[in-house]
Structures are given as structure tokens and as C-alpha cells.
Design a protein around this nucleic acid. Structure first.
Lengths: 138, 138
DNA sequence: TCCTACAATGGACTCTGTCTAAGTCAAGTA
DNA sequence: TACTTGACTTAGACAGAGTCCATTGTAGGA
């Protein structure tokens, strides 16, 4: 956390109250907030923060590789502070809850050359879908 | 194709000119059109078709399991008529070209119980990202 | 042919996200 | 500490994708 702020400052990132609260909101495991949710939480601490600033800051954190953009549904993008350990996502089809997961093996190797159509394959995203325990109980 | 129309009629789907042209537009391999593209192509054959009708029809075809919704970028959803053979997608990071691919193995088995958080896992989507031959050459 | 329930229409509306012009301020300099 | 400047923030307009709804049209059964 303050690690994050230190790293950013070290990279010459100009520190402002707005950027600090956005970075603070994005902390923890299994955190996957939409831009609007980030804005709402940031506004709790800094009421006058604008939507544009939140979007700008999120965009910069993504460019810096400090957070990841995730889109598990077909709606708003979500932002995942867990950018330093590779992982995939498990999503509840009913409530949208998201967990970070670490499958075994390397999914990249499962795509044979004959299925690559001449592409240079650089990455892979895996999204597991199912029903979470709370929704299954309900 | 007319298979599709036959199947739909057999399910009691009321056939209209609009539904027919939407179904006709969605035919072929490696077809991944946005709703707007479907609308544009449908309008070539039936100029007065409305956007709302295209959205309604696409939504119904998805519910019926005849086409798949795909979102490989964070923009518009795309519709994939290849719903009857399981497959995943390979996407060019530069131009957005999409190919249907068939990885080896079953990606579902790569998620150990300890990483399932009590979820009932039902499906998995895999999106490979890379650079297509034309973009690599350019 | 007539009826009626279902489908299509178009326009307003919502939700996400981007852009811009003007004002503000962090941090380096003296 | 005060000054300066370019980067940051703001509010609001704008744009793209998709949904909703009241009205109009029509497929297909009687």
C-alpha cells in the first residue's frame, strides 16, 4: 500500500490528494471495483474528486502496470490491484462475485501451433464461471 | 443455415422477415460481428429494420443457445454463430481480428478444488492474445 | 378472411467512458 | 518562504453501446 505510493513517487509520479485516495481505495485481495465504485469510495474521503480524475488515475495506474483492467461481464471494466502475481478469475454467474484463482499448468502451452493461425501468441486470460456458495444456498 | 431457420421454426419461433435476415447474417466460420455490424448487414437486405429489433433478436438467439456472446475487447459485444462446437478465441491485440481455436485438454480440470472457493464451476472461457500475421508484417 | 397475441419500430433514456477548456496546485528554485 | 510553471483536476458536454416503452404492424391459427 504505502509500498505502492512509494513506488509511484519513485517513478516521478506527482503525488496529489486525489491520486492518493484512488490508490488507497485499490488495496487488498480479491478487490475488483468498477470505476464508479472507485469514485464513490474515493469521494467518501475526498468529496470533491471528479469522475474524470478517477478515470485518468486508473488509466495511469494501468499503464504503469500497478493495477489490471478486468472485464468479466459485458458491463463496466473492473480494476484489480493484484497486478504483481499472475492469476485468473472465477466469477459467480448470479451475483457477479469475483475471486482471483491460480490454475495449475500454463494455459499458453495448450494451444497447438496448428491452432495459432500464424499469430504470435503473447498472453492468455482464463475466466471460470460458476455459482458461489452464497448464491447456491439461496 | 436453413438448418438454423428450421430449428428455430421447430421451436415455435415466430418467423418474420427481420428475424430471418438477422439469422442469415450470422452464418459462417470465424464470424464475430457486433450488434451494429449485424444491423448494417441486415439493413442491406431489409433497409427499414430497426436497431431495437436486431438487439431483441440477438438476445433471443443467445437465450436459445443458437449463437454466443463474446467480448474480447472492452467495447461492443460480438456474436458468434459457432455455438455448437466448443471453442475459445485468439485475438489480435492490434487489429482485433478474432479466430476460433481449439486448445488441447480441458481447461476446467486445471482449477484445483483448493482454488474453487466453494464455487460450483460450470464453464470456462479462454482468450489468447497475440499479433496476427498481417499486423506482424506491417 | 379475420383476430389476436406476439413482434417491430423509433425515439427517449441509461450507463460507461472520453474529451476539453479553464482553473488549481505540487514541487523545484532561489 | 515566496515564486513559477507545467502537470493535475474539474465540470460539463459529448459519444458509443445498449435498454425500454408506447405505438403500430403482422404471422399464423380459427
Amino acid at each position: 500500500m504505502s509500498d505502492l505510493l512509494e513506488r509511484l513517487r519513485g517513478r516521478g509520479w506527482r503525488m496529489t490528494a486525489q491520486r492518493r485516495v484512488v490508490a488507497e481505495v485499490l488495496d487488498g485481495d480479491h478487490v475488483h471495483l468498477t470505476a464508479d465504485e472507485v469514485h464513490a469510495r474515493a469521494a467518501d474521503k475526498l468529496p470533491e474528486i471528479s469522475r474524470a480524475t478517477v478515470y485518468n488515475t486508473l488509466g495511469e495506474l494501468v499503464s504503469l502496470g500497478e493495477i489490471l483492467e478486468v472485464s468479466t461481464d459485458h458491463r463496466a471494466k473492473r480494476y484489480d490491484p493484484n497486478a504483481h502475481r499472475p492469476h485468473h478469475h472465477l466469477v459467480c454467474a448470479r451475483c457477479g462475485a469475483i475471486r482471483d484463482v491460480h490454475p495449475t499448468g500454463n494455459p499458453l502451452t495448450s494451444l497447438p501451433d496448428s491452432e495459432r493461425f500464424g499469430f504470435t501468441v503473447e498472453g492468455v486470460e482464463v475466466t471460470y464461471r460458476g455459482v458461489c456458495p452464497s448464491c447456491a444456498a439461496a
